[in-house]
């Protein structure tokens, strides 16, 4: 057969593509369980981070089972609905209209004994998605801890949101000002938000990522407002 002819080239390409596709499909299926386990452990460790518990890949599962004692799903009115919160994709939920979203919540009881409510966050930074978890005390208002992560923000600038220095600022901030939901603002150092909201200092040089964090908090925590208010009236 003529090795430079078109027929040979076409058959060669087709065979090659099919062989490679089979090899990759087998590799992907064979390694999937191990990968999913890693992703789940990583998620547990992120959730634990938001309640200020650091974990390693080895003990994340154990600590998660110890401290996170419940998780459930509520709707926009704060009513319990059916759903599995751990596997829920927050980014997909955000595409739905606000009143149709289902909102996952994790409850953590740490050594102090009072429950913390953990809300997953999802948004976008400058180069790609950013996400995180924020934990709120049982008054439904005060932030207990926050954790943010990103896919590809600029190292040294936007990527600073994953550093403890940035995340620690959120501790003790409030989501309700005078009884109305007012999300925490991320402001350029030295500036104050006009609506009187609680604020933290933005990452200098990471303006768009900082804005992304601010919008993420606004978009992701606001639907929980009803739930948090009922928490507040129940416990205070």
């Amino acid at each position: 057969m003529n090795k430079q002819g078109n027929t040979y080239t076409l058959i060669y390409t087709a065979v090659m593509v099919i062989v490679v596709a089979f090899i990759l499909a087998f590799a992907a299926i064979g390694l999937k369980p191990a990968q999913e386990k890693n992703i789940a452990i990583d998620k547990m460790s992120q959730i634990l981070n938001s309640v200020n518990i650091t974990s390693t890949p080895e003990d994340a599962q154990e600590l998660y089972n110890k401290y996170i004692d419940d998780s459930f799903v509520v709707d926009a009115n704060g009513q319990l609905v059916k759903g599995e919160s751990f596997s829920m994709n927050i980014a997909d939920q955000l595409k739905l209209p606000e009143n149709q979203r289902t909102l996952p919540i994790f409850i953590c009881t740490d050594d102090s004994g009072s429950p913390k409510y953990i809300i997953p966050l999802s948004g976008s930074g400058l180069w790609g998605p950013i996400w995180g978890y924020i934990s709120i005390e049982n008054d439904g208002n005060t932030v207990y801890g926050a954790f943010f992560a990103h896919q590809g923000e600029t190292p040294g600038l936007g990527a600073e949101i994953e550093k403890p220095q940035f995340q620690k600022q959120f501790q003790g901030k409030h989501f309700f000002i005078d009884g109305a939901f007012t999300s925490i603002a991320v402001q350029k150092a030295g500036q104050k938000p006009q609506n009187g909201a609680d604020y933290v200092d933005a990452v200098s040089g990471g303006t768009i990522t900082s804005k992304g964090v601010q919008n993420m908090l606004q978009n992701c925590v606001k639907p929980y407002a009803q739930f948090l208010e009922s928490l507040n009236s129940k416990n205070i």
Binding site: Q4, T9, Y12, L24, L31
Partner: peptide, 27 residues
């Protein structure tokens, strides 16, 4: 390897190997 598509063949081989390495690392 047909001469006219040799770069494509090289790329496919490299890409397949890299994906396998990536999957193994993730696992």
């Amino acid at each position: 390897i047909p001469n006219s598509i040799r770069i494509i063949v090289q790329l496919v081989v490299v890409a397949a190997l890299v994906i396998i390495v990536d999957q193994v690392l993730k696992a």
